[in-house]
Design a protein around this nucleic acid. Sequence first.
DNA 1: GGGGAGAGATGCCGC
DNA 2: GCGGCATTTCTCCCC
Lengths: 237, 237
Amino acid sequence: MKRGVELIRELLDSKRTAAIMANCSVSYNGRAKSYLEKGDRLIVIKADSTILVHQPAGSNPINYMKQDTQFVLEGNVLHARNAKEFLDIEFHEVYSVLARDLKDGHELEIHGTERQMSDMLYSNPEMIEKGFKPLSREEHTKYGFIDLFGYDSSGRLAVVECKRYSATLDAVTQLRRYVEKIASVKGVSAVRGILAAPNISPNAKKMLEDYGYSYCRVEPPKHYERHKKDQASLDNF
Amino acid sequence: MKRGVELIRELLDSKRTAAIMANCSVSYNGRAKSYLEKGDRLIVIKADSTILVHQPAGSNPINYMKQDTQFVLEGNVLHARNAKEFLDIEFHEVYSVLARDLKDGHELEIHGTERQMSDMLYSNPEMIEKGFKPLSREEHTKYGFIDLFGYDSSGRLAVVECKRYSATLDAVTQLRRYVEKIASVKGVSAVRGILAAPNISPNAKKMLEDYGYSYCRVEPPKHYERHKKDQASLDNF
DNA sequence: GGGGAGAGATGCCGC
DNA sequence: GCGGCATTTCTCCCC
């Protein structure tokens, strides 16, 4: 036990990424307050002083503190603190400690986001409706910011809200806010609302129709080229 | 290298929680699509087949798959798949592998949630307004569900929406939906809207006033007894 | 299983 | 710094 805690003390001073398996109890006080009874967990401490407590099941850490955390090891207890939060881990048994200086200079490339979806619609307005003429993207207003807006084939102003997954009630109220804002700012009463998403919930559909808005089925874009290349290289194995 | 990949093969068959430090590249295809170039990472594989890829900085995993994932190790590449998603990790060098059967039977106790906030207001309605009479909590409607509703001191129906942190534009539109729904269902035109939160953004405040709704400053409840007890026991060190 | 909404949400970008 | 909003959001609750 003494040895295990000493290993933790050593890694806290080094700028390394560490994985600790230990039996511990955890208490947190900050934005909320929580307590976790004694059990086996995996604790990750990163070079940027991020700390994560993982149980043996589940994808999310059960407790955590983000970067800019100060650590103090007092007896068997590791105190992690930042400006407004406190996390205390009491170690009952330390099973193993793994630490290494990890080097990583790359960021994730990601495709299929809502932003890319509005880009796609801006470049391919016929996906919304035949004759649709986009005016602008990412328009900022006091009541929120608008994904896409423009004129439909009959020359009516239209606000388009994109969702990369199923559209919910919130998406409809969001759209409504934008439509009303545009109507008020432009002094036009008949502004159209269009919700573009691969799917829409029944209640959201009903609410959309109640307001006289339209639904437009659109899949978010994905770029498969990279994956194809990967697959080719993987085939070599 | 061969040895490192073999260690990974062994742990995949065991029901253990593992931490792997390795140089690898990662590609994902599923709800979105992503690629991560070669670099050092910490990979966590849990007994429930959750897999997480962590970079040496940042609190969130850069890639992940949740439980019910199937693993196939093919040469240097670990393929993780579930019904709709694919995650491939190509190992360039495996630095270390740590695996253990972790036992944990406890769940997190948490305090200070929005639910506990509406409980508090239901039990202490004077925190909303003098003479407020709560009628029900967590009322389900087609347009969403209402935190709390009741009568104010003058007998007018009122919908209360709670937020544990700062109230945003979304909170106001949510409240508006509920007020309009209650007004329509009960056939009453003058339903009040009350937003209860420790804070409110200026734009949300303005929108709230535009609709004639009220803001009520309330702090979410926290229970400090447990922490005090912990502190007492920690003082023994 | 899907819909609706909270979360210690987190993270990003813009003002 | 706050505000507004997307997220491979995740999670829970309830139909």
